[in-house]
Design a protein around this nucleic acid. Structure first.
Lengths: 342, 342
DNA sequence: ACGTATGCCGCAATCGTTTGCTTAGGTCTC
DNA sequence: GAGACCTAAGCAAACGATTGCGGCATACGT
C-alpha cells in the first residue's frame, strides 16, 4: 500500500466525517475542512504546521473521504459534466468520450454519459436528465442541424459545447470536415480517377454536409461534377453503406471512386463491392473517414481526425464556459491516410 | 411541449426548492416532499386530493426538480452505480455498458463509467474513485484472474458484480465461454478440418481461458490435439491478432483452421492471411468471437454472445446485492454464426 | 506601553431533503 | 359520551461540508 493510501479496512461501521476527525483532534470542523481543502495541501496556512500534519495524518488513517453530496449541496456545484453521444458503441464517439473523460479527470471533474441514439427528441430528454442531476456543463456529440433545443439551452445560459459535429451559432470543437473531404478528392484525382460517388451519411449533420461539400468542391475546382444519383444519403453505419453501394451499382455506369463519409459505411460498401467481384483499388477506389481500427484492418484509405484531442478540447471548452470566460470554437486538422483500397 | 414538461424558462434566478413550493402553497416542506415522492403520484394519501393536485401543478409550473445532492446527503444513497471497463472503445464492452445503463435508467439509477485500460492497478484506482463518489454498487467488466482487490471489496461488503469475465468466488454475469469455444471446434470439425491454431488472448482473463479450454476440449474429444506453439497468447486487439498470425505462419506446417477468441484479433489475423495470399475458407478457416459488426462486415464466422443482455442482467444483479438479496451468478448461452471465413 | 498586525482557530448559519414524531380535528364504535 | 381511529397536515432534527465573521493570543512596531 502506498503511503497515502487511505485505510479502507477500518472496521468502524460509522462513516468518518469531518466531525469525526475534528472531534478526535479537539478541533472544529471548519478548521479541518479548510486545511483539507487548501490547494497548498499540508502547507496550508489555515492552521499551524503541526496541526496540519495531524489533520492529514488522521484523515489518512481513518480513511476519510469527503462526502461529495454534502459539498455539492453547500457549494451548488456538482463538478460533473454531462456528455451526450449518439451511441457509445460507435468507435468514433467512444474515443471522443475517452478524451473528454480523461481531461475531466485531470481537472478533478467527472462525467456522466448518455446515448441519444441520434434522435433529436432523445437529445432533449437526456440533456434534461443530466441537468436534473445538476450537471455543471454539457457536451453534445450528437448535434443536428437546426435543432431548436440548443438555442433554448443557450438562452437559459447553460454552459455547453458541441464536439464532432458543429451547428451554426453554437460553440463547437470539430475536425475540419470540409478539408477532410478535399483530401480524399485530391487523392482520388491524383491517382487518376475521374468519376465519383459519395456515400454521404445523415444529411442533417454537419459532418455529412461538410465532408461531402469539401469533396465536391475540390472536384469542382478540377472540373469534375458528381451526378445527384451518385450522392446517397442515409445513416453512418455499415447497413447504410451496403444499401448505398447497391444503389450505386445499379447505375448504367459505375464510378471509378467512392467516398464514404464514415468508415463503417465504407466497410458496408466494401462488402458489397467484393461480393460482386470488384477488386480494389483496380476496379474501383474506396475511401472512408475517421481512420478507425477497422479501416486499418481492412486496408481502407481514410481520413484521420484527432478524436481523442477533440474530446479533451471539448472538455476544456465547456470548462472555460463554466468559468465564465469567452471561448471560441476550435477546428482541428485532418490528415489523409492512404491504404490499399484506393 | 408535453403536458408534464417542466417549465424551464422561468426567469426567477432563484432556484425553486421544496421551500419555495411549500411557502407558496402555505404548506410545510415535509408535506410537499412526501407528496412529490409518493409512488402513488397524485393519488398520494399524504394530503387531500385537492392539495395533491395543487402541489403537482405548482411543481410543474415552477419547473421544480429535486436536488439529488440534498436527497443523497440525507438518505446516504447515491442511486449511482459505478462501472469499470477495460476500454469503452471496445465494441464489446461498450455494448455491455449500454445494456447496463439502459437497465439502470429503467430503475431510476444512473451510472458512471471508467476505463481501466485493462491494467489491474487502474481497476483499483478507478473503483476507489467511484466509491469516493459514493457509488451504491460496482460492476466490473475487466476482471483478472486472482486479483486480490475483488476479495478486498468482498470483505468490505461493497455490492459488486462482474460482467463479461468471471473470477472464482465472485458473482458474475457471463456468457458460457467454454460452450462458445466448443461451438467453433465442432463447426471446424464438421467442415472437415483437422489441424488448428488458437489466438488465445490475454491468458489472465476467464474469457481467454474458457474459450480456449472449450475449443481444446471439444477437439480432444475428437482425438485432436493442438501443439503448444499454435496456442498463442497476447492481447485481444487487432495488433495482437496480426502478431499471432505471423507467428503461426512461421511454422513448417500451417493449420487448417484458426480460432481467435476475439473478433478484433481475428480481423488482425485476417489481414495477415490475406496479405500472404491465402484465401478463406479454402486455404484456411478463421473464426472470431463476439459477433461484432466487423465480423459481419468482413464475413467472419463468429460466436454471438448476448452482450446487451449481459449488461442489463449485470445491473439487476448488483441491484439485488444492494437490496441485500442472495443472488447467483448467471451464465448465458452463446450461438454460432457461420459466415464465409470458415 | 499601547495600538496594530498576523497567526490560528471557533461559531453558527446555510445548502435542500427526508422522516420520526406530533397535533388537531373529525368520524366511528360500543 | 369516551375511547379508538382516521385524515391532513406541521415541527424539527438530522445528513456533512463550506464559509463569512469574529476572537483571542502573541508578536511587532514605535
Amino acid at each position: 500500500m502506498g503511503m497515502w493510501e487511505r485505510n479502507r479496512n477500518v472496521q468502524s461501521s460509522e462513516p468518518v466525517t469531518l466531525k469525526t476527525l475534528a472531534h478526535e483532534l479537539g478541533l472544529n470542523v471548519s478548521t479541518v475542512s479548510r486545511v483539507l481543502n487548501d490547494p497548498l495541501g499540508p502547507g496550508s496556512r489555515w492552521a499551524s504546521q503541526k496541526t496540519n500534519e495531524k489533520i492529514f495524518a488522521l484523515a489518512r488513517d481513518k480513511g476519510y473521504s469527503r462526502n461529495p453530496y454534502a459539498a455539492s449541496l453547500r457549494t451548488a456545484k456538482s463538478n460533473m459534466v454531462g456528455v451526450i453521444v449518439p451511441r457509445l458503441q460507435d468507435y468514433v464517439l467512444a474515443t471522443i468520450y475517452e478524451g473528454i473523460d480523461e481531461a475531466a479527470t485531470a481537472h478533478g471533474l467527472f462525467t456522466v454519459v448518455a446515448n441519444s441514439l441520434d434522435v433529436a427528441a432523445n437529445q432533449r430528454v437526456k440533456a434534461e436528465m443530466l441537468l436534473d442531476r445538476r450537471a455543471d456543463g454539457l457536451i453534445f456529440g450528437d448535434a443536428h442541424l437546426n435543432e431548436p433545443y440548443l438555442d433554448e439551452l443557450k438562452k437559459r445560459g447553460t454552459p455547453y459545447t458541441l464536439v464532432s459535429r458543429s451547428s451554426e451559432g453554437h460553440i463547437s470543437v470539430t475536425c475540419d470536415d470540409h478539408a477532410g473531404g478535399r483530401l480524399i478528392a485530391e487523392h482520388f484525382i491524383a491517382t487518376g480517377r475521374g468519376t465519383f460517388g459519395v456515400i454521404a451519411g445523415d444529411s442533417n449533420t454537419s459532418t455529412s454536409r461538410d465532408r461531402t461539400a469539401g469533396f465536391l468542391a475540390a472536384l469542382g475546382e478540377n472540373g469534375i461534377a458528381v451526378p445527384d444519383e451518385w450522392i446517397i444519403h442515409g445513416g453512418f453505419d455499415a447497413t447504410a453503406g451496403q444499401m448505398a453501394a447497391k444503389q450505386i451499382l445499379q447505375s448504367r455506369q459505375i464510378p471509378e471512386g467512392i467516398f464514404a463519409v464514415n468508415d463503417f459505411a465504407a466497410i458496408g460498401a466494401l462488402g458489397v463491392l467484393q461480393k460482386v467481384g470488384m477488386r480494389l483499388p483496380d476496379d474501383i477506389a474506396l475511401a472512408g473517414y475517421n481512420d478507425t481500427p477497422l479501416a486499418e484492418a481492412v486496408n481502407l484509405t481514410s481520413v484521420r481526425s484527432p478524436l481523442h484531442e477533440m474530446g479533451s478540447l471539448g472538455l476544456e471548452t465547456v470548462l472555460g464556459l463554466m468559468a465564465g470566460h469567452d471561448v471560441d470554437s476550435r477546428k482541428l486538422e485532418p490528415t489523409l491516410v492512404v491504404r490499399a483500397s484506393g
